[in-house]
Each structure stands twice: as structure tokens, then as C-alpha cells.
Design a protein around this nucleic acid. Structure first.
Lengths: 205, 205
DNA sequence: TCCAGATATGAGCGTTTGCTCGGGTCCGGC
DNA sequence: GCCGGACCCGAGCAAACGCTCATATCTGGA
């Protein structure tokens, strides 16, 4: 768990506790006050840690958020479970495969919903602070692999592009729901709509 | 063109020129230095205008960005031309209608691409500073209207949801392209893919 | 021509933010 | 028990920022 910059890496338990406290304090501040109210000073204060200590592990605000994003991503991967592996190994029909993938994703998105929402809405996009970016890239990779393996089940065309379009589109709808209509993530409605969206788009005929 | 807060509205030409200079200076700063390097002081300096003058028209940085976003939105609507009206009045088959809508949108997205990219990537989402928000809402509204009018041409289901999913998904792909692969906006490839995505999703059968 | 109101100026105050540094305390191996 | 290194502390400085206000200048209509 190396810090991004040349900062110290915690070796003892109390140091790990310190780092943990800072990250969780940042999470609380994000939820309570928003992204631009998050500062290194405030995070240190809320964590009950000296500002000097904080700067031993994090070079700036971005480094803290990056660690937080990384943590959430890890938690989501746990929530996702073995879906990825299962998908990659089995040979489900298109419709079912998409459904499974979306179910896993929905489960992952239910992790720390309020925090995710804040990050989604307020953190800079497209960089290491973008919670969804790594996730989307991972899914595109997966879909692409499946498509190469079973071309017969998909429409002809640019595989890279198709995978990217399908995943990006579906994810955007999920993110939009997470940000503006969280209740939609609960039922199966959205899952079914997006299954249709992606599977129809990718299917031959 | 009322400012959001209780600030002065320009009445004379030189005042309008001042406001214009500030907005365009903000645009330049966004492109050159990024969103968080944009401050009221810097915008005033680059505009060749006193900070006091700036504060007569804009209460804060957000107000400037809001005016800029509004300006770009207007320019895009011009670029979009009469596509909207044409679509609403004609009765094109689903596939063609989607194609026309996407063509108009692509034209609109070619306005101030670098600036749009910066705003897309760095400005807070989901509020009045979100360049895409108003646009997406407008398109959803349009699609919904068409769907209500010609239900026979669409799959059965929750019209609101379907319109929202189709437009949100397609737009996200466009935005992603605008942010990370601008060259994709040039050809017809993306247009064709997204036409497929949306029309297959919405079509009966 | 004159003047009321519109516009412009910029020094500078109060605050926030990022970050350092000199100095302590605690832990674990020997 | 000793000691080196890991860890923690927090006053406080420099820079950046938001914003005001007293003052000066310009413009268009009467």
C-alpha cells in the first residue's frame, strides 16, 4: 500500500491506524461537507491526528482521495465476488452473461453508496480519483475477452469499439442512477433495461 | 442575461464588453491552466479588468463558469440547428430518427471541443456548471415526446425510463469520446454504433 | 453643456490553505 | 535497559484567495 509520492510507508500498527484514520476522516468529510471542503488540515483534525503526521503519509489532498478511492474499489471487488472469473470461464448465452455482469456490478455499486455518490459528483473525472474509471476499464477488458473467444455469438464489427460502447453506455446509466435516483439501484428494473440495451446492441441479426 | 446573484446587469456597451472579456478570459484559463487554477483574481487579470469590476458582475467563480457554460450551450443549440424541431414534426422511422438526432448532437459537440473537454473533466457535475446536463434533459424530453406520439414504433415498457436510459447511455459514450478520444467524433463510426445501440434498445420485437 | 448614474480602479484586509521543521515520544530488537 | 529508527506533534510562515470600498472616470440624455 505504497503512497503515491515519496512519502513514508507505515510499518508499525499504530502508523497503519493513523493512515486508516485519515482515510476514513476524509470519507466522513466528503459525505458531510463535500469535496472542496476537504483539506489536509481538516482531515488531520477530524482524524485526531497532527497535520505533520498526515504529511508523513500523504503529500496532498489528492493522495488521500486516491487512497480512499482505492479502498472503495477494493471493497467493491469483494462485493463483486467471483462474478468476473465465473463469467470468463463459463460460456453463458449473451443475454444471461450480460445479466450476470450487471448483477455483479449492481452489488458492487451498493458499497458505500453515499460516499460513492459524492465522489462521483464532485471529484475530478478521468484520473486516479475517478472511482468508476478502473472499474469500467476492467469490465471492457472482460467483455472484449469474451467477445474474442465466442465471436459467433456477437454481431460483427470492431470488437474493441463495441465492448467499449456497451460497457460505457450501461455504466453511465448506472452512475446516473446512483447519483440522482439511488432507489433505482434496488430493484431489478434497471438491471433488466440495461441487459436489453447491451445484449441487443451486441447480438447478431 | 441576468447574473445569478444580485450583481449588476450591464447596460452600456463597454460593460457588456467587460463581461464578455471576463467570460472569455475564464475560457482561456480553463483551457490553459485547468479548472482549479481558475480564480476570480486571475480571470480579472487575464481579462485586463480590475478585480473590483469583475465583482460588479460576478459574485464568484461559479457565476463566471455558469455564464460560460450558458454561452457554450447557446452556441451548441445554434450548431444543432433545427434538428430538434424537424425531428419533433416529421415521422421518421426509428433508426433514421436516432441517426438524425445523433448527427445533430455530434455537430453540437464539435463546438469549442477543448473547452468542453476541460469542463467535462474538471467542472463539478450535476449542477448548473454541468455542460451536458441541460442538453441531455432536452434530448430525453424530445425522445419521450416522440415515443408517446408513436407508441407503435417502440417496444412496450416504461416510456420515461426507456427514453432516459437510451439518451443517457448514448450521451455518455459521446462524452467519453470527447474527453478521451476526440478523433472519434469526426467520422461516422460512433454515430453508427450509437444509432444501433439506441434503436435496437427501443425497437419492438 | 452638464450631471446623474453607470462603470472602472486597485490597494489591501481578513481568511484559508498548504506545508515545514524542530522537537519530542514510542516501539522493538539486542 | 538501551538505542536507533519509526512515529507523532503543532506553532506558525508564505502564498493564495475572496472580496470590499473609497475614489476616479466615462456616457448618454436633457
Amino acid at each position: 500500500m505504497a503512497r503515491s509520492n515519496g512519502r513514508r510507508t507505515p510499518r508499525q500498527d499504530r502508523a497503519r491506524a493513523t493512515v486508516d484514520a485519515v482515510i476514513e476522516a476524509a470519507a466522513r468529510i466528503l459525505i458531510d461537507d463535500g469535496y472542496d471542503r476537504l483539506t489536509t488540515n481538516r482531515a488531520a483534525e477530524r482524524a485526531g491526528v497532527s497535520i505533520g503526521t498526515l504529511y508523513q503519509y500523504f503529500g496532498n489532498k489528492e493522495a488521500i482521495v486516491e487512497a480512499l478511492v482505492q479502498r472503495i474499489a477494493d471493497e467493491r471487488i469483494s462485493a463483486f465476488g467471483d462474478t468476473l472469473r465465473a463469467l470468463a470461464e463459463q460460456d453463458l448465452p449473451l443475454h444471461e452473461a450480460v445479466e450476470v455482469l450487471l448483477d455483479g456490478t449492481l452489488a458492487a455499486m451498493r458499497v458505500r453508496p453515499e460516499l460513492s455518490r459524492r465522489l462521483l459528483l464532485e471529484a475530478p473525472r478521468g484520473g486516479r480519483l475517478d472511482l468508476e474509471h478502473a472499474w469500467v476499464a476492467r469490465c471492457i477488458e472482460l467483455v472484449r475477452a469474451v467477445m474474442y473467444r465466442r465471436r459467433d455469438r456477437f454481431r460483427e464489427g470492431d470488437v474493441e469499439l463495441m465492448a467499449s460502447v456497451a460497457v460505457t453506455g450501461a455504466f453511465a446509466v448506472l452512475q446516473d442512477a446512483a447519483a440522482h435516483r439511488p432507489e433505482l439501484l434496488e430493484g431489478d428494473v434497471l438491471r433488466d433495461e440495461l441487459t436489453l440495451l447491451a445484449s441487443r446492441y451486441l447480438s447478431p441479426e
